[in-house]
Design a binder for these strands. Structure first.
Lengths: 361, 361
DNA sequence: GCCCGAAGCTAATGCGCATTAGTCGAGGGA
DNA sequence: TCCCTCGACTAATGCGCATTAGCTTCGGGC
């Protein structure tokens, strides 16, 4: 049998024991010197110097595996996104979040482990143990709305440090960070109202994700402020559209204008369907924005429309969201519990909103 | 003294010992069962099943640090980029490469650890030991030209499996994979030449990175094929520009045209500066592409110009590059050494090149 | 002269796992 | 009956490091 088995790496990398031998001290002393002697044990300066010299001479570098084993934590944070592969496109909305995650993790001295639905171990989407692999890390961030509840619940129940990116109230005990869509959406409506708009319609997708309901909530809240509680309950103030949004036609837009609507607000979704449809319908109807009507987008435009005129609306601080998630996770790791879960979105003036045309009563 | 053992246990993360207790066997047996029992020790099928069940119930996942310490491998591949892997500036993104890495790693049963080198304000920016963290993984991929040589050299000297993405000849013994810029650039020139162009200028950055010199090499090689070796040495065939490329002005372009140049080739760089400048100068000069002159890009256009007409040139198969890097790394891990380091780039016809205008010879 | 405490070390232990030597009982052959 | 093998496990050990509980000296204080 080859005595060293699979380790082809081992070739002469010195251990503390060898440094110790060269310096004429014990391994403990080497560890003490190189580890900064945080426990304040008395060490003679000469000894320190000898150890340092020996370490340098041998080119000693600590083995991170051993270090982490002894420290009982491996300084790894997991990032789990339940998409088939890791979000491929740079334009994908997860990407900017990862930017923030990476920066904050680096700043805190953690490395990242990436998990996806397609991670190894045969852990495909259906596998009831797919989420367990994240336990390899000290804690994990979860992205996306389709993370399986039961598995996540078990992790949380076991006391595994986890943070979900995106509001996730229904899962008891799961920490999360999310953008403050309620406040941001309300703010957009207030601005429109400030410009003189009195009838505003929200175009949202037919999906009851928190991101959608929060926006509607904020929308209706602000509506109530200037038009009273009745307006907030008005069913016609909100339109649910399907994907693709075939129902948003030029005719539909014109009908709404005829009813006195002067502004449309769309929610941002992964596909950008609502905004895209609204945009197309308005253009096809030959209407001018913002002269004939105002538009606002509750979020950022899809990448392919980014070059067009910037929509009035708000920006989701995705990088900041990622950073906040990391902070919350590391707070959990060090015992502290609660950090602020909501991240504010900045209002974006844009140029798709203006005063309503004339007095159309 | 605060009990630390139990407090850690409570924080999730079951050990083999706990699985053993639940299954009513020894830790050794658990290790045997979960490790695939490569030593062929007799194990009763019932025992095996009980252990597996217990492990699943507890959500056991092996600790990579311990695994690596004991067995010298843990099925983790590192990815180290000395700039952020997810950069804020999207135009110079390693992301597509990472996608290929991710997929191939998953296919081979490895998890990925992202070692973030320096980050703005990062804890360990400039730390001379920053690279040692990668030793936690079985092997590591390196991205970017700014990986500190000395540290990398030490890793390689220790026999640590490493693969650099991007040509890296000067560091003896370091394996690498890279795009075949030489062949791809030559091909582009051949196409232009086939269209009738006889005088072509390469606009490159003033940076002697392999990616730049390879392109120039390919460019000159192809030049020699149709215009003889003298042309290949012609200093005026290649222009080095600075960043920003202030020297590429409309006037400069017109002067070149007056000299008989009919096509310009730009190299792709992180910033896309050369291409951007060329584009802008041609537009400002009121020249039409490809009627008045042809343009080609040795690579892909920056993201913000992606929506414009596709440039004639070649595509760097970034995902494939990542996959190839993983293959080379795992080959190293299993003892085989050499895999093909060069990945071919596909020619992209685009629409910025056409026949030269008239006979201006 | 004896005890005490500080200075300056080192032996021993354990982190979680893989691996190597056993151990133990149930047959089987002689 | 005794020994030996074989099947099915377990005790013990070590990976490289950090940490903790000891050891020695040596110099005062009384």
């Amino acid at each position: 049998m080859a005595e060293k088995g699979p380790s082809r790496q081992r070739r002469g990398r010195p251990r503390q024991a060898e440094v110790a031998r060269l310096a004429g001290v014990s391994q403990t002393t080497v560890s003490l010197v190189l580890g900064g002697n945080k426990q304040g044990i008395a060490l003679h300066e000469d000894t320190r110097a000898r150890v340092l010299a020996a370490a340098r001479e041998l080119g000693y570098v600590p083995d991170p595996a051993a270090r982490r084993l002894a420290a009982a934590r491996n300084n790894l944070l997991g990032v789990f996104s339940f998409t088939a592969t890791f979000p491929t496109a740079v334009e994908h909305s997860y990407y900017p979040i990862l930017v923030g995650v990476e920066q904050e993790a680096a700043a805190q001295g953690y490395d990242l482990v990436l998990f996806t639905g397609s991670s190894p171990g045969g852990a495909q989407a259906g596998d009831p143990g797919a989420l367990n692999r994240v336990r390899l890390a000290d804690g994990c961030l979860f992205l996306g709305r389709h993370v399986p509840d039961d598995q996540l619940r078990k992790l949380v129940a076991d006391g595994y440090p986890a943070v979900h990116i995106g509001r996730r109230d229904e899962l008891e005990g799961l920490a999360w960070v999310g953008a403050d869509y309620v406040a941001a959406s309300a703010e957009v409506v207030r601005r429109l109202s400030g410009l003189g708009h009195r009838r505003i319609v929200l175009v949202r997708e037919d999906d009851d994700a928190p991101a959608s309901t929060d926006r509607e909530h904020g929308f209706r809240t602000a509506l109530a402020e200037y038009a009273g509680p009745r307006a907030a309950d008005d069913p016609s103030a909100v339109v649910r559209t399907t994907h693709p949004a075939d129902d948003i036609t030029p005719g539909w837009v014109r009908d709404r204008l005829a009813e006195g609507v002067t502004a449309f607000v769309a929610e941002e979704t992964d596909s950008g369907a609502a905004w895209r449809a609204l945009h197309a319908a308005v253009a096809a109807a030959g209407l001018d924005v913002p002269d004939d009507l105002s538009l606002a987008l509750l979020g950022s435009p899809p990448a392919d429309l980014a070059a067009a005129r910037p929509p009035t609306g708000f920006d989701i601080p995705r990088a900041e969201l990622g950073a906040a998630a990391v902070r919350m996770l590391t707070a959990q790791l060090s015992g502290e519990e609660h950090t602020e879960p909501l991240v504010a979105c900045g209002f974006r003036a844009g140029s798709t909103a203006g005063p309503p045309p004339g007095r159309t009563g």
